[in-house]
Nucleic acid binder design. Structure first.
Length: 609
DNA sequence: AGCACGCCGACT
DNA sequence: GTCGGCGTGCTC
């Protein structure tokens, strides 16, 4: 009898391996790689479902095998390429294949499957061309320049691969970029060849899209970060828009990010890879620096820039410019770093910064004017523990500025836009938009005036990536400027001001990255962050890591976490050691509830420093 | 999920 | 020396 290797989409470490089962002869015809099967498991009376990831003549397992109970779906629900990718990423991120399977294969909808009309074509992939191109493209900065717009470039590249019978994978940060990309795909006449993988679609839609993507026909598979794991027949290229955006990082274990998965996948499937953004991430800057990525600049038309060196948020001249532009019935955009009314508050009576009583995180005033903890979301009354009932805002947020400017410009339409509002576009007239980074609405022909009200605060943050992140946020908002528009940075001086005058984001980020690399910080290295609720477990871990990972550099330590940097080249050995050590210590740990993790391992934490 | 195994304390 | 309670590990 033939043997099937089965994997389970489970986050339990004990189940993170392949289990072999006999295939009853009557089921053999309905089982292929990627089929979903039910199998007996342990002493349980109910069966477990898992994917077939191998069919062989015999098993290496020492004792007697059980048999597959039934076939749930004989379609190829996961491709061999997807499985190899999951294994590679799990290994590198010190995580489990089981955790990634649910990203690679969405939740099943039996109804959608019944109506699935595509015949599965088992096309034999043509011989791989040995020439693979890897590049970073800095597209036209202004969105109004359709010819050099990133979505136009992506649609062109996709069309080229499709015409050669190759599949294309496109990943963008969020729904706004999805809309833009979709428009470009549709106007290039590629809609029939495209399939969307989005967590915002219904279960049925997602499952149908997944089945279409596994059907063996080369397609343009596009979506948000999870789409990097999507099936794609005869993959010719992976296109990633804005790899440095925060939403390109998965926030749950094993904490992968689109860029690194895309790089692994392009190596595994020998396909082209293209990164594009208005301002590069430090990691992309490094890959260009070491010659891995080829840098392609499209001709740039940059808007005129004015630098206001005052520390004031809106100086007199900026204020006058806003007023004039609005009176000319043209749109104005103000980018503000923080959401809500205040990013922190100090009690007027005791002068202390108010903090959450459980986690000690500074409280902020959210868009509903409620004092709230940023990390555990709990709301607090206006009253401080000292009895004081009034506070002073530390940094004024987007809502406060919106209220303030509504009073200053009583005749203008003042609009607030943040991640919550989902304003994607506005009419072209005298509207004043106050937006948080990434939530700037699109307007035809672009804004006549773009003001970066918090420039100084953004670069002044005590974070490794402050400058890189600021550049990305500015560049993306600058893209919404009109051809005749003006951009104003408030509070910037010196060399950075000179570079910003000509929108030299590539140069700014490259210099910043090189400087960091010289002292061994990311992007020359990656950050390993391990957290644990138990102090003793964490100190045991610290000891073991000091012994067995002497090359890793301790960079931060608190009661609940410990962080190191490690050289990128040592990544796989580091991950292997971390897996072994945390597994041993988890087993030895006294205080632990069943099924609960002792350690949370993030092999690439870009927030900790 | 549910069973076997083994370590340890209580009792004969 | 034996019984049994329960925490731990394994399941192809």
């Amino acid at each position: 009898m033939r043997v099937a290797s089965v994997v389970f989409a489970s986050p339990l470490p004990q189940l993170d391996k392949e289990f072999d089962y006999f295939i009853p002869t009557d089921l053999e015809a309905s089982i292929q790689f990627g089929s979903l099967v039910s199998v007996p498991f342990g002493k349980s009376k109910t069966t477990k479902t898992g994917y077939v990831v191998g069919i062989k003549n015999e098993s290496e397992y020492g004792s007697e095998l059980a048999s597959v109970s039934s076939v749930e779906s004989s379609l190829q629900l996961i491709t061999p390429e997807q499985y190899e990718l999951c294994k590679a990423i799990a290994k590198r991120q010190a995580g489990l294949v089981g955790e990634l399977l649910s990203t690679a294969v969405p939740k099943r909808s039996v109804r959608a499957e019944k109506h699935f009309a595509y015949s599965v074509s088992k096309t034999v992939n043509p011989a791989q061309s040995s020439r693979v191109s890897r590049s970073f493209v800095l597209p036209g900065l202004l969105d109004v320049d359709q010819e050099v717009h990133w979505s136009t470039l992506f649609a062109k590249m996709a069309a080229e691969h499709i015409s050669k019978g190759k599949g294309v994978l496109v990943v963008v940060p969020d729904f706004r970029d999805m809309e833009v990309l979709e428009r470009a795909i549709h106007s290039s006449g590629l809609a029939e060849k495209a399939v969307r993988i989005s967590s915002e679609d219904s279960l049925t839609q997602r499952w149908f899209a997944h089945l279409r993507a596994t059907s063996g026909i080369p397609l343009i598979t596009y979506g948000t970060r999870g789409a990097i794991f999507a099936p794609s027949a005869n993959l010719g290229a992976i296109l990633v828009w804005d790899d440095g955006d925060d939403s390109q990082i998965e926030q749950s274990s094993p904490y992968w990010n689109t860029r690194d998965v895309a790089l692994s996948r392009s190596e595994l499937e020998h396909c082209d890879i293209v990164f594009a953004s208005h301002s590069p991430s430090a990691e992309v800057a490094r890959l260009i620096e070491i010659g891995y990525l080829n840098y392609q600049e499209t001709q740039l038309q940059t808007p005129p820039v004015r630098i206001s060196e005052t520390a004031e948020r809106l100086d007199g001249e900026t204020f006058a410019l806003i007023s004039r532009t609005l009176s000319e019935n043209k749109p104005v955009l103000i980018q503000v770093a923080n959401l809500g009314y205040a990013s922190a508050i100090a009690c007027l009576k005791c002068k202390e910064i108010r903090r959450c009583s459980t986690c000690q995180t500074a409280l902020w005033i959210d868009p509903t004017k409620t004092a709230r903890c940023r990390s555990c979301k709990q709301s607090y009354s206006a009253q401080c523990s000292c009895g004081g009932s009034s506070y002073r805002p530390i940094s004024v947020g987007s809502k406060a500025l919106t209220d303030q400017l509504s009073r200053s410009f009583p005749n203008a339409t003042v609009l607030h836009s943040s991640g919550a509002e989902r304003v994607t576009n506005i009419e072209r007239k005298g509207i004043l938009v106050i937006a948080t980074p990434g939530a700037e609405p699109w307007v035809e022909e672009g804004y006549e005036l773009v003001v970066f009200a918090d420039s100084l605060n953004m670069v002044g943050l005590p974070r490794l990536r402050a400058l890189e992140n600021a550049c990305s946020k500015w560049a993306n908002a600058l893209a919404k400027c009109s051809r005749t528009g003006l951009a104003i940075y408030v509070g910037i001086t010196g060399r950075l001001a000179d570079q910003l005058r000509s929108s030299k984001f590539m140069e700014i980020v490259r210099e910043d990255a090189v400087e960091r690399m010289e002292i061994g910080l990311p992007p020359a290295s990656r950050t390993l962050n391990i957290s644990s609720a138990n102090k003793n477990d964490l100190s045991d871990l610290r000891e073991r890591l000091q012994l067995e990972l002497p090359e890793a550099r301790l960079i931060s330590e608190t009661a609940i976490n410990i962080a190191y940097t490690y050289a990128i080249a040592t990544g796989s050995e580091t991950a292997e050691k971390v897996v072994r050590i945390t597994a041993e210590l988890s087993r030895a740990s006294k205080k632990r509830k069943p099924g609960q993790r002792v350690f949370f391992v993030n092999m690439d934490d870009n927030k900790v420093i």
